[in-house]
């Protein structure tokens, strides 16, 4: 029920926007995020025909960086375990 998908704003027309998810397009009301500055190319979450939040690209990049660190930590621990033949943690 609370499902919501990230969609790219393609065109803003007053208080609605045409948004795309992959090849599908949706018309979304901007009523609930009218306080945000929005432009074509921004991503918004759409829920039941309303954009409910603008996605924060900087935060998304930060999160992805953390994941990269995880993967490399994991790889290095795997490598060390292989070399020492011991379970480290």
């Amino acid at each position: 029920m609370c499902l919501s998908i990230p969609a790219r704003i393609e065109e803003i027309d007053g208080d609605t926007a045409n948004c795309s998810v992959g090849t599908a397009t949706y018309n979304a009301s901007l009523h609930l995020i009218s306080h945000e500055e929005l432009k074509v190319g921004d991503y918004v979450l759409i829920h039941t025909g309303f954009a409910i939040q603008k996605l924060d690209e900087e935060e998304a990049i930060e999160t992805l960086k953390t994941f990269e660190e995880f993967k490399s930590l994991n790889e290095s621990l795997d490598q060390e375990e292989k070399e020492t033949n011991q379970r480290i943690v």
Partner: peptide, 10 residues
């Protein structure tokens, strides 16, 4: 109208 805080504002 059903749903939680996500849906109620709409």
């Amino acid at each position: 109208g059903i749903g939680f805080e996500t849906t109620a504002p709409s």
